[in-house]
Design a protein around this nucleic acid. Structure first.
Lengths: 250, 250
DNA sequence: AAAATAGTGTCTGTAAGACAATATCTG
DNA sequence: CAGATATTGTCTTACAGACACTATTTT
């Protein structure tokens, strides 16, 4: 029955109401120890003047490619550039309430990106008016983008627990303290340095030593830290669980 | 730049290539201790004669409503019926490769459904030719539905670890052994009865006792089991982790 | 009686979190 | 030197998995 309907409609692709498919990207990075999200300012209706997630229509390409392309465009990079290669991109969810866009039916596939510190798009010449904002100061986004951003943040917090994706926020070589700063920024709470250190090193495949150390100690003192690179684990076993709040139980 | 493009396109919704948006549902249930998935048989091209996930076009409704409607149609129930209310439904992911449907660009939002044993759709009169198949015997589905099913199974396995959703597969009152059968079926491995029992009862809010017991012991002997209902936890703390395989590390 | 199952008790190894201690830098 | 930080050590508590045991029920 359904298959018949699908079949018939297929011969007149415009017989059903037009639906636009877009991608929107929640791109996260850490700057100055705080979690930032990439936003553009809308110039046109609807929501003119409001901030919004970068995004656009899907072309003759996969959804993943569309998201990567949009992110590259807004950051002023090309999809092939080295900085883009280090970006972790994953599908977040799809938002398609009939009235989420007042103009027409728009189904948006949201993506989540974890990026190491990228060049500021403002300096990027051709780039759009996109820039990074601290996530805890963001609200009142256009469309349902507040909701999409929330979903992205919760996904990011959760992903840090059981995947090594925190390494996507730092350079290719990093210290345990830098990794801890990522967790602190994303989870929004301080972590005990000693316990965090031991835990990170105890998870097989999370990080591997480079043998080298930083050139200098910390800004405010302290010994040089050892340098690590990302290991080959895809999942963290055992996981790095964040302190459980009482949101667990309803 | 993007916003301008969005704005202009909005005034001529048919200026961009038509894209169809559908929902496909991976509906899972347990029958005879084995995990089953709901499939239809396609009567028309493409993939005529092949099995496929139930699904169809999204109408003037939310994506969630579309998925619920499709599932109800294929199972011969109405969305308001009691059996449907007990179904857990969540978005799984969106699949939109340009050539996944040879007819035209179709972006499909996949949903995952956890259902207690539902009436067999064959007996449902008007219902389509949908029926339940053991997941481990399923392959060669139409379109990219093998991939969607795999994603659904992996999500289901993972969800059992840290949410109480196993209770969505059993009746409103159940024994610990029934719950264990759900975990065994979804994870595909036997679990130690004693340890499982203690663990389930130790997680706050997972299950709560009804005070009653089953009327009879097991088919092949054994004492009557105590009955429980689902508790108020939304997450399991601590989680019920499945035995780690070596898929963890690449 | 025999077999199966529900539920509990015990023991061991691992891991998390709270501190504490030490060594090494920067200003 | 004072203060900050990296890294390691210790101790306590919690939990997972292996195994054993008892009680209850069906055939």
């Amino acid at each position: 029955m359904t298959s018949e309907r699908e079949y018939l409609d297929a011969y007149d692709p415009r017989a059903f109401p037009a639906t636009a498919v877009t991608v929107d990207v929640v791109a996260l990075t850490i700057r100055d120890g705080r979690l930032h999200v990439l936003l553009i300012e809308r110039g046109e209706h609807p929501y003119a003047g409001r901030k919004a997630l970068p995004g656009g229509f899907v072309r003759e390409e996969t959804l993943d490619d569309a998201a990567r392309r949009e992110l590259a465009e807004e950051t002023g990079l090309t999809p092939e550039q080295d900085a883009m290669r280090r970006v972790h991109l994953e599908q977040l969810g799809t938002f398609g309430d009939p009235c989420r866009d007042p103009r027409m039916r728009v189904v948006s596939v949201a993506y989540l990106a974890f990026a190491p510190s990228l060049p500021d798009p403002r300096s990027g010449g051709d780039a759009a008016a996109a820039s990074w904002f601290p996530v805890d100061e963001v609200s009142g986004l256009a469309f349902d983008h507040d909701e999409i951003l929330s979903a992205g943040l919760e996904r990011a917090r959760s992903k840090l627990e059981y995947t090594p994706l925190a390494t996507a926020f730092v350079g290719s070589e990093f210290t345990v303290a830098e990794l801890r700063a990522v967790y602190s920024a994303v989870w929004g709470e301080d972590l005990h340095a000693g316990n965090f250190h031991r835990k990170v090193l105890s998870v097989p495949g999370f990080v591997e030593s480079t043998g080298a150390t930083t050139e200098r100690g910390g800004e405010r003192g302290g010994p040089r830290a050892r340098l690590y690179r990302a290991g080959d684990a895809r999942l963290l076993h055992p996981a790095l669980l964040r302190p459980a709040s009482e949101d667990d139980v309803r």
